[in-house]
Amino acid sequence: MPPVSGPTPRRRGPRAWPRAAHRKGTMGTTRTTVRWAGLLLAALLSAGCGADTGERPRSADSGVQVTNCDRPQSFPESPRRVVSMNQHATEMLLTLGLGDRMVGTAYPDSDDVPPQLADSYRKIPKLSDRYPTFEQVLAAEPDLVVGGYASAFAEKEGRGRKALEDRGIRTLLLTENCTERTTFDTVAEDLRMFGRVFGVPNRAEKVVSGMKARLDAVRAKLKDVEPVPVFFYDSGKKSAFTVGGRGLGNEIAAMAGGRNVFADNDRVFGDASWEQVAERAPRAVVIIDYLGSGQVDTKREYLRDHPLAGATPGVSEGRFIVLALPDIIEGIRMPDAVERLARALHPEVAW
């Protein structure tokens, strides 16, 4: 992990659900039941994708210096060949209208991509279904590699930031991986960082403003509600792999009029015992959907049949909400996730 970062590597039992490996040491609108609210998201994305702001990516100037996860990076000119190692990071760059700079992406977490980004996303070469090798990254000839999870730059796999920088390739990592607590401000500052690096600061500011307006509107509607205790279920059988207090998922729950029952877990994602789940008696359960994590219906039935989780109010009353993994981690989906979760938690509010 970086110096101040998300969870320690998860100890997974032999029966755990597969494919949480890319989130070890770091901190999907489901494929079956939840689709993107396109009109709502369009208000956000129109500022950064497809709209002509009169701003063009910087080709060369006096240069930009940023410090990212305690690592200084200098950009004498705007990056022209970018590899983005995770879907949520790719979506951030595409929202800023940078699709023509993308030469590779990898490790998608969801089949669903926001509709306004779908065409641009499909045009980016997919280097690997999981993480590409160091050689595959080099073959794309990038001048910048962006990581969504710290595992994108796993030193033991030869993709460390230093190894890339020694080849003249700059690196950026989303700040959720190296901060004490992720909030909307974290997302906003990373979008602004990309705006500076690529010479599109006005475009970034419009995206940030659009996101903030939507979140403020939800907050205003929920000002008098009582928070609903929420349990996030990612995966796991021996223990529950859940959302801790450091990540954006915790902030999303609070903004949606909920209370993450494992906010005291000092990780972005971490393990909790089933006894703890029972003791904290969540009144709603968010099932996290992503590629390779097991079917949502299977997870729901597992919770219903579990001797401890099955007795909690949220499970016994069937109060399930499904969010995709990219919905609850740093990225441009935050307003949509907050709106959907708020409606599910507080149907009594006049939406």
Rank of each mutant, 00 (worst) to 15 (best):
T53A: 15
P3G: 06
V4C: 11
E155N: 08
P9N: 12
G13T: 13
S120L: 08
A21S: 14
E330L: 07
R56V: 10
E77D: 08
A220T: 15
V322H: 01
H346V: 04
I329E: 01
E165G: 06
P347T: 10
L93E: 01
E189R: 11
M27S: 12
G97W: 07
G50D: 06
V277P: 04
K156M: 12
R122G: 05
G199L: 02
G210P: 02
P76N: 01
G210Q: 04
M102V: 00
T30K: 05
D266G: 06
G148Y: 02
R56D: 15
S59R: 12
G147H: 04
A204Q: 06
L303S: 03
L40D: 15
D109I: 00
L174H: 00
F231M: 15
G331S: 06
S316C: 06
D185N: 14
T29C: 12
P307N: 02
Q276I: 08
S273H: 03
P76M: 13
D224N: 15
A139D: 15
S151G: 13
E141F: 01
R246C: 07
V230L: 09
R130Q: 15
T182V: 12
R181V: 11
P79G: 01
A344V: 09
E301F: 11
G245F: 04
D143Y: 06
T53P: 07
Y107V: 14
P125F: 01
R219I: 11
E189D: 13
L164G: 02
T183L: 08
R23W: 11
G310I: 02
K238M: 08
M334C: 02
D109G: 04
K212M: 12
N68I: 05
R10E: 08
P3R: 12
S273I: 07
L144D: 00
F75P: 02
A118N: 12
P18G: 15
G292M: 00
Y149H: 11
R170L: 08
G50R: 10
P18D: 14
R333Q: 10
